[in-house]
Design a protein around this nucleic acid. Structure first.
Length: 103
DNA sequence: AAAATGACCTGGG
DNA sequence: ACCCAGGCCATTT
């Protein structure tokens, strides 16, 4: 894993504002990578000082072993999950977006 | 060197 | 909702 992409990915994740989320694939795309797996791998390795909970699967679910923790952290900033699934429609972040329309 | 393993994604039936 | 196939790619067996 080269140093550069590692920092790229971290920078992208760090830039996600509270109350919004991105998928692993989104992060990969923004960071200029071709694989979402790499993003997951980097976060798995070291996510200590990042808002890692704002990154989830493209379908709004999260990995089993993180489910409790991640949804709780998201709930704390206003991102509500319907059961095990977060609505990407509502919370997905795009850098230029305006206030989201209701439901 | 070859195969398995992930905090993954997309498209199809 | 379900299952499956194929793509993805660094790291570890």
């Amino acid at each position: 894993m080269n140093e550069e992409t590692w920092e790229q990915v971290r920078a992208v994740v760090a830039s996600i504002p509270p109350g919004s989320v991105l998928s692993y694939g989104d992060v990969a795309e923004i960071a200029g990578l071709r694989s979402a797996r790499i993003v997951g791998r980097i976060l798995a390795e070291d996510s200590a000082d990042l808002p890692w909970h704002r990154v989830l699967r493209s379908n709004g679910t999260v990995a089993e072993h993180l489910r409790q923790r991640q949804l709780e952290l998201l709930r704390a900033e206003g991102v509500l999950a319907d059961g095990a699934r977060v609505s990407m429609r509502r919370y997905r972040w795009t850098p230029d977006e305006e206030p989201r329309p209701e439901v």
